[in-house]
Nucleic acid binder design. Structure first.
Length: 151
DNA sequence: GCCAACGTTGGC
DNA sequence: GCCAACGTTGGC
């Protein structure tokens, strides 16, 4: 089992939006970055756990824990001309983008980006590196456990 | 709103 | 295959 951190803009899907969804589950669609896609398509397994992270907002940080509840399948938004995630180069025969589904395990207190930066134990986390923009990143078990212990 | 960092595109 | 131009991300 692997651990991940997945960013979401709360104006798109917040932790409370997720909590209010049927089955507290959401399709992680709209990812249009190959590295992030590859993590979902090639590496994510059922039962993997992920920090749910609010980005591009007043208080960026970890706000919950989710689990992968459905393996990657072709992202339907790539085929929809009305979607902002439409990709004219993708076809059902040759899908380009994939998404998993995640289910909320629990909301947590806000562990802000600022707080995360304050722990030397987390200094090598991908999310804390300068210039990091990747919306899905692996989390080391040691880093995962450290954060679980400060929740 | 700014801007550094990074990814993608497309001409050559 | 190179690389300039452009677009996006995301914290501040």
């Amino acid at each position: 089992m692997r651990y991940w951190l997945m960013k979401s803009e709360p104006t798109e899907v917040s932790i409370d939006d997720l909590a209010a969804r049927p089955g507290q589950t959401v399709a992680w669609d709209g990812v249009r970055n190959y590295q992030a896609r590859n993590f979902m398509r090639n590496q994510m397994q059922l039962g993997d756990q992920a920090f749910f992270y609010h980005s591009s907002c007043d208080e960026p940080g970890i706000v919950g824990i989710t689990t992968v509840s459905k393996l990657a399948y072709p992202d339907v938004t790539q085929f929809d001309p009305k979607s902002k995630y439409y990709d004219p180069k993708a076809t059902p025969e040759n899908p380009r983008w994939f998404n998993v589904e995640v289910t909320l395990l629990k909301k947590t207190r806000l562990v802000s980006l600022k707080e995360l930066r304050s722990y030397p134990e987390l200094a090598s986390m991908r999310i804390l590196q300068k210039g990091n923009r990747l919306s899905i990143t692996p989390v080391d078990p040691a880093e995962w456990n450290f954060i679980m212990n400060i929740l």
